[in-house]
Design a protein around this nucleic acid. Structure first.
Lengths: 102, 102
DNA sequence: CGTGTAAGGAATTCTGACACG
DNA sequence: CGTGTAAGGAATTCTGACACG
């Protein structure tokens, strides 16, 4: 895991980086669009990947998209990623089996 | 400037990432080994580059090196970087001048 | 010199709610 | 639905100091 995925940024830094209000950021989390981690005391910790995602979200909101739609899209993308990995694994298996027949 | 140089991490995250105590991190700043930025309210904001530097510093301290020596080394490296840039600029200038003679 | 710790205060963040629409 | 705001409290961070060595 690279720096980009480390959950280490406080919400204040995220707000500055994205230009979004604290309220908006918390709301997008509430709607399940982002999933920051929590410190022992309960403060949110974000990654730079979250920051990028938030900027995407902000654009989609500006375009009139609703949070549940945005979430649906993310779910689909996640599913695609999973499918991709599955396909690669299957290909790997087939490839290995094919080699054994030689 | 990439993500690595953004001054956005609170000291707590830096402490977790490096394994160093808050006290140590603040002390290394006091000795001029790192230069975090400050928020409006005065809280320190570090970059991932600072985190990497702190891990180097920790190793050098472990090796018995003193903070002022570490600082001296960093100063030298900085000077080297500057020299490098200067050389490149001079070469660029000469190159441009040379082309004009053709 | 480098680091731990207790102390008091200030900045940051948290949640739940009311408001508007 | 998405967002602002005031409210009270908790977590985080800050500084200066004393301690040890």
């Amino acid at each position: 895991m690279s720096y980009k995925d480390k959950k280490v940024l406080p919400i204040g830094s995220v707000s500055e980086l994205t230009g979004l209000s604290l309220r908006k950021i918390r709301y997008y989390e509430e709607r399940g669009l982002i999933l920051p981690e929590r410190s022992g005391g309960g403060t949110r910790k974000f990654s730079f990947t979250d920051v990028e995602k938030l900027m995407d979200i902000a654009n989609q909101i500006e375009d009139g998209m609703q949070t549940f739609e945005i979430k649906k899209i993310y779910k689909k993308e996640k599913q695609k990623d999973k499918d991709k990995i599955r396909d690669e694994m299957i290909r790997g298996q087939l490839n290995a089996a094919f080699k054994m027949t030689k």
